[in-house]
């Protein structure tokens, strides 16, 4: 019997770092959802360590894909075969689980996206540009301010009895408005529900403006766990919202699928360094190049005192010095 082959997908985001292991038939074998806590390298190492202890270090990894805002960093540390932006990764993952999806709503830690698909192709997308008011880290902050575990935040919204309108345009103003409503005696449930509605309103008015939202609508990203937001979306769109089974690790799943596609198409061996990279020390350093008036911020990743990668320079003066250059 042929040895089972696996593909690893890694999504290093602002709030969470996710790992997904799929087998050759694209089924998810293992998934890990970790908080990044501002230390992506640590999160990555812990994630890999956990995964190795669960599935065994000896399994055969055929390819690795990375995505998310920390995709370059992750690709250098683990040795990735495919580095993709999170929009493409999310779209690929959603299409795999729900083939007739036409709209993807995705709300992550610090960004939110809407992806429109037609005939199985990404047709249009938008990603929040100016403000992070409607995203996971804001909800996180509010939950901890109110001393409610984030996992129960949505339940509170569902128990609301009356509507409270919260200004959702800006995170700072939303927070002042919530405090104001709190001080005037509104119940916590009503306020939380008001906040969910404000976020959904903000999302639909900014991101989804002018976009034709058609069934099937899929909602993914960490915030999809919040039943209050889901309910608010269903009310605002008057549509059924589908939450995929692996909603919280869709980016990583997409990265794994993309890595599999690439390796199958191009063949060759994976760049993966193996699970034992967790024993190495990694440091990131940033330098401002003084070579010209561009003053590029160059990021340097060091492992055991040798330079693994550099990026961020426009001219290639720094990144071209080492073999493992990352194209940004």
């Amino acid at each position: 019997m042929r040895e089972q082959q696996y593909y690893l997908g890694i999504d290093v985001g602002s709030v969470s770092t996710n790992l997904v292991l799929i087998d050759d038939s694209e089924q998810i074998v293992d998934k890990i959802y970790l908080r990044t806590e501002g230390q992506p390298i640590n999160a990555l190492r812990n994630g890999l360590k956990d995964m190795a202890s669960r599935v065994g270090e000896g399994i055969k990894i055929k390819g690795v894909g990375t995505t998310g805002s920390g995709r370059q960093l992750a690709s250098v540390i683990v040795g990735a075969d495919c580095v993709k932006n999170e929009i493409t990764a999310h779209a690929v993952a959603a299409q795999k689980l729900i083939p007739d999806v036409r709209t993807i709503l995705e709300i992550g830690g610090q960004d939110s996206k809407i992806i429109i698909l037609r005939n199985g192709v990404v047709y249009d997308f938008a990603m929040n540009t100016v403000c992070a008011a409607g995203t996971g880290s804001f909800l996180d902050r509010q939950a901890s301010r109110l001393s409610i575990p984030i996992s129960e935040f949505g339940q509170y919204a569902l128990r609301a009895k009356s509507t409270v309108r919260i200004a959702g345009r800006c995170a700072v103003f939303a927070e002042s408005d919530m405090i104001h409503k709190q001080q005037t005696g509104h119940s916590l449930e009503d306020i939380i529900n008001g906040l969910c509605e404000a976020l959904v309103r903000n999302y639909l008015n900014n991101l989804a403006k002018g976009k034709d939202i058609q069934d099937v609508v899929v909602f993914q990203g960490g915030v999809a766990a919040n039943v209050g937001i889901v309910a608010a979306f269903e009310r605002a769109l008057n549509k059924k919202i589908v939450i995929p089974k692996y909603f919280d690790v869709m980016g990583a799943y997409g990265a794994a699928l993309l890595a599999r596609e690439k390796m199958q198409k191009e063949g060759g061996n994976t760049n993966f360094y193996g699970f034992n990279i967790t024993e190495n020390e990694y440091k990131a350093k940033s330098i401002e190049c003084q070579g010209c008036s561009n003053s590029c911020e160059v990021i340097e990743i060091l492992s055991n005192n040798s330079v693994l990668a550099r990026w961020g320079d426009k001219c290639g003066k720094w990144s071209e010095q080492i073999s493992h250059a990352v194209n940004v």
């Binding site: 805002s69 999170e86 929009i87 493409t88 005939n119 192709v121 990404v122 249009d124 997308f125 990603m127």
Partner: peptide, 21 residues
């Protein structure tokens, strides 16, 4: 810069896929 490039990259993926289809 990073967020800006993510969008450009995704946009190019979109154009590529559209052309293929």
């Amino acid at each position: 810069e990073a967020g800006y490039l993510t969008r450009v990259e995704a946009f190019l993926d979109l154009l590529e896929k559209r052309r293929e289809s």
